[in-house]
């Protein structure tokens, strides 16, 4: 075994407000602890060395919880995957989030892992990201500008720049993710590779969203995970379906198109061939489920 340095911690802070947190992060020399399910492993194996100061944001009560107001869903960054699984109102308004949370890691990890952490980890295989992209979510970022809190909103689709990389600047804290409640008839579904029902990292994951009305498909979004450096929208497959009649071999054609938009790798989990194959299978199944189910 090669021993890798993992950085050291010389300071620990546990703020209770967003402002305190933003100030603690301001110099960019801090690691943020939320659920810790990624951070602890990555610090231990050297992939994400600690930055000297650990800022535990878990005591910031206002960061946890989900609410639906004014036709918009807002989920605080500290909301755990278990919270999402158990949130009745959310499950009713956006069933795909519960569907995805149910396939996320294991019970123990869901109890700790937060939605903000899953987004900030920026894994192309991050499960919660996939339906959020299909919901065209935005993230809220907060930082300390020296005198006050500065916030900005970024479309989730523009958020990821590569595996583990985002547009977030050092010193910024992701505070929430939000999206419009899907309109009536707009359905969103998620699929990921097995075969294990728990503790399975996605070889391929996919989400499909569309409104199928009077035999015509509109508002189509196809999102794919683990098949490119970031989660991606399959834009040409979406274009193929937008306004098209959902009949005949449309699902198969769109699935083929989606499979052509990915840039999968060969790794220990799967070959590029299998990732392409599964992408096509999942997209076709999801379309059939949403449009004909």
């Amino acid at each position: 075994m090669q021993v890798k340095p993992s950085g050291t911690l010389d300071e620990y802070l546990a703020p209770v407000t967003i402002e305190e947190a933003a100030r603690a992060l301001a110099d960019g020399r801090a690691s943020v602890l939320a659920g810790g399910t990624d951070l602890m492993l990555q610090a231990a194996n050297g992939r994400t060395p600690y930055r000297g100061r650990l800022v535990n944001i878990r005591r910031i009560a206002e960061l946890r919880g989900a609410a639906i107001t004014g036709g918009r869903v807002r989920i605080g960054a500290l909301t755990t995957v278990t919270d999402i699984l158990n949130h009745a109102e959310l499950a009713k308004a956006v069933p795909v989030l519960r569907q995805t949370a149910d396939k996320f890691a294991s019970n123990q990890i869901r109890n700790m892992a937060t939605i903000g952490g899953n987004i900030c980890n920026a894994s192309p295989a991050g499960d919660m990201i996939i339906p959020l992209l299909a919901l065209e979510a935005e993230v809220e970022l907060a930082s300390w500008d020296g005198a006050k809190i500065r916030t900005r909103e970024v479309a989730l689709e523009k958020f990821f720049t590569g595996p583990g990389r985002t547009v977030m600047e050092r010193g910024e804290l992701l505070t929430a993710v939000s999206f419009a409640v899907p309109e009536a008839g707009h359905r969103v579904r998620f699929a990921k590779s097995g075969p294990r029902p728990a503790l399975e990292i996605s070889t391929v994951s996919a989400a499909f969203a569309a409104t199928c009305k009077d035999g015509v498909t509109t508002n189509v979004r196809i999102v794919l995970g683990a098949v490119a450096p970031t989660p991606i929208r399959a834009r040409s497959a979406e274009a193929l379906m937008e306004g098209a009649e959902c009949s005949g071999d449309l699902a198969a054609r769109a699935a083929k198109a989606a499979a052509g938009e990915i840039s999968p790798i060969d790794d220990v989990r799967a070959s590029a061939w299998y990732r392409t194959h599964l992408t096509e299978v999942f997209v076709r199944r999801l379309i059939e489920d949403v449009c004909h189910g």
Binding site: P195, R196, P197, A198, I201, R269
Partner: peptide, 14 residues
């Protein structure tokens, strides 16, 4: 694959 993530043991639900 020297880890539980990629060395796939059978888990209880299976």
């Amino acid at each position: 694959n020297p880890n539980f993530r990629d060395y796939k043991l059978i888990t209880s639900p299976e």
